[in-house]
Amino acid sequence: MDYQEFKKSLAEEFPPEDWSAVLKSLWYDANGKWEASHDIVDGMNNAIAKWVHAYLHRKEGDDWNARYWYRQAGKSFPKRSLEEEHRELVEFILNQ
Rank of each mutant, 00 (worst) to 15 (best):
D2M: 06
Y3K: 06
F6E: 05
F6A: 07
F6I: 03
K7C: 13
K8I: 00
L10H: 08
L10A: 08
A11L: 14
E12T: 00
P16C: 04
E17L: 10
D18K: 11
D18N: 15
W19Q: 11
S20P: 02
W27P: 01
W27G: 03
W27L: 05
D29G: 01
A30M: 07
G32L: 04
G32D: 05
G32S: 07
S37Q: 09
D42F: 03
G43E: 06
G43H: 11
A47D: 14
A47E: 15
I48G: 00
I48P: 00
K50F: 08
W51R: 14
R58V: 08
K59P: 00
G61F: 12
D63K: 10
D63F: 10
D63L: 11
W64K: 12
W64R: 14
A66G: 13
A66Q: 12
R67T: 07
R67Q: 13
W69T: 06
R71L: 09
Q72A: 15
F77S: 04
F77T: 03
K79G: 12
S81R: 04
S81A: 08
E83H: 07
E85Y: 04
H86C: 05
L89E: 01
L89C: 01
L89V: 02
V90E: 07
F92T: 15
F92P: 00
I93L: 15
I93M: 12
N95E: 15
